[in-house]
Design a protein around this nucleic acid. Structure first.
Lengths: 223, 223
DNA sequence: ACCTGAACACCGTTCAAGT
DNA sequence: ACCTGAACACCGTTCAAGT
């Protein structure tokens, strides 16, 4: 056959690597992503990847950022009609949906944006919108942070999936109130979505009360 | 020297393994925990660990459960005077403090209790207390879940640490509102604790409003 | 510039062998 | 029962060599 060294057309590029890595992580989890396995999937040898990324972690960062890029930020645009409360609500749903589609990537995203462009765009958009709505910068920072806590926490640890689907696992003598815990696995989605909806509503109600109470009169822009 | 095969007194036991593994993870992170490294730290050879744990993951589970065991649950005791709102608040602080002491273990804990006894005790206590306070079981389940989302989310991704301490990292053309983001690393703790306090307060205020609104009269089951 | 195979220093786990 | 060294099938990454 032809001697393999450098093809005239590159076999690899960053996009193809990120796409394949993402598919692998989605299908089999973070542990399945090894440079050798990924390279095999791409039809090249392991070290080839290092012509396009400096480390495996950089590949994983790019995969994570591709997930962040799917989060809807339109509600934070200056000319969007939604008030800050509705904007946060709609954003949280889109945020959670993006992570729920790629649960294995959540541990990476939960660590914060770092230098990932799409992750930074998200942080920038929510901060800017909250300040425009009248929140003091310190509070706007807190809101961005606490929303991330809640959304990534909910996406990372599906509550119901956190219990084992095995009746004998939860001895009533040890855990008097967990009699039905193994049943959680059955209606997993309902529990997770219910808990998320309840928490989001409580969070926004609580923030709303604080907003009104603390009289955010504007010296400049107003709602 | 003496031929090494089986000492009359076992060199290893589960507690010693878990303790050393926890110290290693705390000091150098999850990636530093390898069976060979851990064994070396314990003065034995790698395979010895398999006499006490079936897999490395089981060791990690035990390390995580030791962290859960440090969470204060006294506020959920039936004879404790604290109302449900105060109990949730105090519990959240203790919960977060336990995780903050062992940040590298949080990704494991965030996955849910599984079969870990201390993790299950936590879930059992909060669920029991919420039902006793008058919440319908479905809502009590949601409360346990959403509190875990928020606390693990906050412990997993320190918001401020999620940004890079490098002024050039955040180009104002790309992120118009992140001008001071690199400064977050400076007052890291203040930001993280402020965001946590703001979120916890909003969450409890929101739940409180819902509790009153939905008339949880005691004396029997309620919708 | 971009790919290769060989090599280095690691992994988790199994297993027969020792006491 | 509990530890050992050897072995298996893996890792991430470096590097000289090829085109």
């Amino acid at each position: 056959m032809c001697a393999m060294a450098r093809p005239r057309k590159p076999l690899l590029n960053r996009d193809r690597i990120v796409e394949t890595a993402g598919a692998l992580v989605d299908a089999e989890g973070l542990a399945a992503l090894s440079t050798r396995r990924l390279a095999a999937e791409l039809g090249v040898s392991g070290p080839s990847l290092y012509n396009h990324f400096r480390t495996k972690d950089e590949i994983l960062d790019a995969v994570a950022d591709a997930v962040s890029a799917k989060i809807d930020l339109s509600m934070f645009a200056p000319d969007d009609p939604r008030d800050w409360r509705t904007a946060l609500h709609d954003w949280a749903l889109s945020y959670r949906a993006a992570l729920a589609d790629h649960p294995h990537v959540v541990p990476v995203l939960a660590q914060g944006p770092g230098r990932r462009p799409a992750g930074l765009k998200v942080a920038d958009a929510v901060f800017g919108a909250m300040v425009r709505a009248g929140w003091p910068p310190a509070q706007a920072t807190h809101i961005g942070a606490l929303m991330r806590y809640f959304v990534t926490g909910s996406a990372l640890g599906s509550f119901a999936r956190g219990f084992v689907d095995d009746e004998t696992a939860y001895d009533p003598a040890d855990y008097p109130h967990l009699g039905q815990a193994h049943r959680l696995a059955e209606h997993r989605e309902k529990v997770d979505e219910g808990a998320f909806a309840t928490g989001l509503r409580a969070l926004l109600d609580g923030l709303g009360a604080r907003y009104e109470q603390e009289a955010h009169v504007s010296g400049g822009a107003e709602t």
